[in-house]
């Protein structure tokens, strides 16, 4: 009897949880497959179509011009912003992993004066809310000639990714027994070599996880993309997607839904792929929101 009651509880709570998570997702999913007449329907579309996905890659926000009465003569496709976002994220992750893994190794292995200061400095950077940097980063990038440039945006993203990656990797390296490296050193390996040969391969799941989280951080950046980018050819996905909203009204719901899915799918798939490595510590700060 008691068992039955418990089962009832579990099932109803699970249902509630699923509804809470899936209602907004379901809506976007079904809208993306809906033909124009059915975009605001409640149920699954009766004539599901892939037209929206085809359109965002070939025509862009084409019907914006129709809806708003020739508002825009240009109808950008998702191709350029997708490429820009990918370019910035991949580059930022590459640079981040390069400098962060070495720094994290140093922080997890060596003892020296001033190490505590460096650790606190990185932790400070890690929890720092980036909106405060909006104005100075813009002014700085203008001075450096990196305003409205994907390179400048990538540099700004390092403010998210490097502290995060360094802090997380430090934790990972601390979890790998030092004795293994020492054994390698006894056999004649140099300190740096033992790091490359022994520690890095052992930390591979950690490295991949941190790289993916860094990638998602860069992918989801709105702040710096908003203030640093100024021309259409350089817009990233968050800016691109903003053009679907005109005066608070959704223009072209079908293509908007398709765009959102394409833009959200890559991070979500990456996340779920590494799900079993996701620990509390890692997730802390994956999104500074």
């Amino acid at each position: 009897m008691r068992r039955k009651k418990k089962n009832g509880w579990i099932i109803s709570f699970a249902l509630l949880l699923l509804l809470w998570i899936f209602i907004p997702i379901y809506w976007v999913l079904k809208t993306s497959f809906a033909p124009e007449e059915e975009v605001w329907g409640m149920g699954l579309p009766r004539n599901p179509t892939l037209q929206n996905f085809r359109d965002i890659f070939t025509m862009g926000q084409g019907s914006m011009a129709e809806v708003t009465g020739a508002m825009l003569s240009i109808s950008p496709t998702i191709v350029t912003p997708l490429g820009n976002t990918l370019f910035v994220a991949v580059l930022a992750v590459f640079l981040t992993m390069l400098v962060s893994s070495i720094a994290a190794f140093n922080l997890s292995r060596f003892a020296y004066r001033g190490k505590q200061v460096v650790s606190s400095y990185i932790l400070f950077a890690y929890v720092f809310p980036p909106f405060i940097l909006m104005v100075p980063i813009t002014v700085m990038m203008r001075r450096l000639g990196l305003y409205d440039s994907l390179w400048g945006l990538m540099l700004a993203h390092l403010a998210y990714t490097i502290p995060f990656a360094t802090y997380m990797l430090r934790g990972y390296f601390l979890g790998i027994p030092q004795e293994l490296e020492e054994a390698a050193q006894v056999d004649g390996c140099s300190r740096f070599h033992s790091f490359i040969r022994i520690t890095l391969p052992l930390a591979a799941p950690g490295l991949v996880t941190v790289a993916i989280f860094s990638f998602v951080l860069s992918w989801g950046d709105v702040i710096f993309a908003t203030v640093l980018l100024n021309t259409q050819e350089r817009y990233t996905l968050p800016i691109h997607i903003g053009f679907f909203l005109w005066g608070g009204e959704i223009i072209d719901p079908g293509r908007l839904a398709a765009t959102a899915l394409v833009a959200g799918l890559i991070p979500a798939v990456l996340y779920i792929a590494i799900q079993r490595f996701v620990q509390m510590g890692l997730v802390a700060g994956a999104v500074k929101g």
């Binding site: 989801g220 997607i241 991070p267 929101g289």
Partner: peptide, 9 residues
Amino acid sequence: IPYALPLFI
């Protein structure tokens, strides 16, 4: 999943 999606999405 909600956390895996970027906030702007």
